[in-house]
Nucleic acid binder design. Structure first.
Lengths: 330, 330
DNA sequence: TCGGGGAATGATAGCGCTTGCATGTATTCC
DNA sequence: GGAATACATGCAAGCGCTATCATTCCCCGA
């Protein structure tokens, strides 16, 4: 065996067929005759051939790779979605190029450039894009998929839900539960703000008293709870429910409250967002808003698949909805 | 402008140089004359050229991509390491192909094949490999980096620490703190087992009484705490310290204990592992073992960089050590 | 018996880039 | 002042694959 990596050519010679046939076999075994297929299979095994997808991608101008861009990894409410996404993509024969954007527009642009320069089939992203980057993406043949939100005018398609509707429903829920003095702990990001604003608008509509607010850095996480709780304590009157931007934050608030001697939910109710696994496992279990991350992943992948076949997905906005899950904490 | 993507050729014509020079500029702007560089820069901006790394990778047989393989994403103690890894790699101009292996050897093999077929420069992995996959990797020119452990005979190089030493030190720490009846909650994985066995051996050496044990599924996480705690309660005598396989698990146990009316650490002490961000933010703060995830990331990347220059890293085993961080919970 | 049609395969021209070698031009040294 | 040296650039041969088109071979119906 030659020192270099075996190529299609090596396999072809060994199987006494042309490289074209081996290529066909590799990409769709069904199109070659059974006995030829068998010879090729053997030749591949004997040579230890591993396809070179750089060459394949160059020739076919499709890379079977998709770029997934997320703001953060740690304690993020995306984790479940991302895990599902990566697994499902992998199952669909697509490899994942992961990028962590943070809150930086430059980093995002760089990551998108990287993705495009690898000729990814699609970019799945969950953060905001600046004008220049939008243009970059629009020009490219890659399918752009925004997840976790439903912008009015998506670049490619969007799979998510209405954060405004979520904010509104949370307000209604809080009212229906009899809470009177909500406190919102909001992450400093566009989507969280949208939920907050919708909450406030609805609250003013159907209840009285102005909710109090805290803002925490993005990503909203466990550790921010301490400061938010301290802020609440300094309020003239203690809130009776705190609405958090994520389940991790909610968990943190439960812990802070308990450690200050408050009972949850009797003295202070807590709501989370995202229905991360921990929300159901905490004591008390945390009332939260469930978003079907696996469905988002599935829809995104379905869109990619149909895009590859040339048939554009029929809807550009896919609303997966959300669901308030009432548990013990509120 | 042509409808198709602009190529090196387009840029070259526009800048009145050869494609070779443009290529040089793109890869290392310093090697072309300043005024030529300027012309090329303009031409790139005007055409909106985006390099095709599939072609580049094919020609140069280096892809500037590395595969990162991890078992899980959610609540994982790897999260911080992975986040650091992805960010640092990205900064170093390397893109990340992410694979989630779960506990499946087939999936791992498939992901490694995928990685090799894209001719990644390196594979960073933190799980076990079966014999066939090891062979696959060994043959390939990609650098293989095992992280979070130090196997006796690494395939490529390994960056991690001795789990046996960690287990031993944890035992010593527990003894020094005066605990007498430890309970171990161990994840069902090789590394956790190694720590456990070393703990047991050391405990038998320097203390008396046999520690009690629970095993939880991999990955060890928050939700497993409930069952582990229930098991402890059924013990003839309640342990005075519980040693957990991860900080998430430890957090879960603190919550379970508190919700059962026990005080931590007075009635039950709790130790975690990994020093995830939450460990320091929990109430009580959690005593744990710190592993410098960022350093693991840095060392791995340094190894890749030097491997690319042809100089193999001088040590195949890089021990980043660990450190017990005594906080409130134990 | 012969032609038509389909299935399986082969030949080959790129895909867009990198890189060793050749060439040309400016700089340096004695 | 001429040779030696360094520097900037061009030329062109691939890198390993895919996809188009052409070819061969068989089977089948008229």
């Amino acid at each position: 065996m030659p020192a270099r990596n075996p190529t299609l050519e090596d396999v072809a010679q060994r199987a006494r067929v042309s490289t074209a046939t081996v290529s066909r076999f590799v990409n769709n075994a069904a199109v070659v005759a059974p006995d030829t297929a068998e010879r090729i299979r053997e030749a591949i095994a004997e040579t230890g051939y591993i396809p070179n997808m750089l060459a394949g991608g160059l020739a076919s101008s499709k890379s079977r790779m998709v770029s997934v861009l997320i703001p953060h990894l740690s304690d993020s409410m995306f984790n479940d979605t991302i895990e599902a996404m990566v697994e499902d993509l992998s199952t669909a024969g697509l490899n994942v190029m992961l990028g962590i954007t943070g809150v930086s527009a430059e980093r995002t642009e760089q990551l998108i450039r990287d993705a495009l320069s690898r000729r990814v089939d699609a970019v799945i992203s969950s953060g905001p894009l600046n004008a220049e980057t939008r243009e970059l993406v629009r020009r490219s043949p890659a399918l752009f998929i925004q997840i976790w939100e439903l912008p009015a005018d998506p670049i490619g398609i969007a799979v998510g839900f209405s954060h405004a509707a979520a904010g509104r429903d949370i307000a209604r829920f809080a009212v229906s539960r009899g809470y009177r003095r909500p406190h919102l702990v909001t992450a400093d990001g566009a989507r969280a703000m949208e939920r907050r604003d919708a909450f406030l608008a609805e609250w003013r509509e159907i209840a009285s008293g102005e909710p109090s607010l805290s803002t925490v850095d993005i990503p909203s996480r466990f550790g921010h709870a301490r400061r938010a709780f301290a802020e609440m304590r300094r309020l003239p009157q203690m809130p009776d429910v705190v609405i958090c931007g994520s389940d991790y934050l909610a968990m943190g608030l439960v812990i802070e409250a308990q450690s200050a001697g408050l009972r949850v939910p009797d003295d202070l109710a807590v709501m989370g967002f995202g229905n991360s696994a921990i929300a159901g496992e905490m004591r008390p279990t945390i009332t939260t808003v469930d978003v079907d991350g696996r469905r988002i992943a599935r829809e995104a992948i379905a869109a990619i698949t149909s895009h590859q076949k040339g048939t554009l997905p029929d809807q550009r906005l896919i609303d997966v909805g959300f669901r308030i899950i009432a548990r013990e904490s509120a």
